[in-house]
Design a protein around this nucleic acid. Sequence first.
DNA 1: GTGATTGCAAATCTTTTGCACTAAA
DNA 2: TTTAGTGCAAAAGATTTGCAATCAC
Lengths: 139, 139
Amino acid sequence: MTISCQRPYREVLERLRMSGLRPTRQRLALARLLFGGCDRHVTAEALHSEAVSAEVPVSLATVYNTLHQFTEAGLLREIVVDAGRSYFDTNTADHHHFFHERTGLLVDIPGADVVLAQLPPAPLGTKINRVDVIVRIEG
Amino acid sequence: MTISCQRPYREVLERLRMSGLRPTRQRLALARLLFGGCDRHVTAEALHSEAVSAEVPVSLATVYNTLHQFTEAGLLREIVVDAGRSYFDTNTADHHHFFHERTGLLVDIPGADVVLAQLPPAPLGTKINRVDVIVRIEG
DNA sequence: GTGATTGCAAATCTTTTGCACTAAA
DNA sequence: TTTAGTGCAAAAGATTTGCAATCAC
């Protein structure tokens, strides 16, 4: 049995439009790579190679710009697990991550699988934005 | 009332010796800045400025090397909260962090103040190394 | 003395930026 | 046509590395 997460072209396009992002050739190509299938984690460098391999010449600078625009639009979430390298997650739902330090592999943990029974109050004058749980694994 | 965490010179020196690190001028000076007082969070850049201000000329490269040696020796813990900047924490006990995104301020949360009631099992063939909880705050 | 440690400068790597060019509306 | 978006190359940070000089033992 195979689970497919294939999503049609027009749905991806619609998603861009809804975010107020003009569906340019490059944005569309990147969006299809990112949102056309199952949820995934990418680095800018990796997405760039992928795009180039897929005959979609995009500059690395544009990949960076696009990833940030998508993140700002709420289509992606930036994950910080590794000093000096940013990951972007297409899964924007509430969830956490396993991070394999040696391989750099990032794996989702469904939101329900981590239960934070107690959290301290935010320091005076601040409010909690998000809670990230990173389970660092090895082996 | 003031809580002091002053620690004597010879204790810091002993700590280096115990870690098998030769107590050189630079290592000792950095160790005193790091471990001579209360627990703290530093970036390489910040520690370097501090050292230079304290009349202890150390090169930035040596600060980086030293921070990593200390981390490897278990005297420090590296905290990743910000892509492209590493923080080092002198508190190596089990605990978590508030991170103020705008100011870059990092504040300890005592281990007991965060209760993880449930964690998923590590993926097959791996083991959990550490669990980091980062409470991102704003305002 | 001898091997570990340091400083410096250069290299590396990731990410951002400025600006002329191109494409979407 | 008009404005947003793109590519490129250069800049900006953070971190690392190579190697000769220096220091702890």
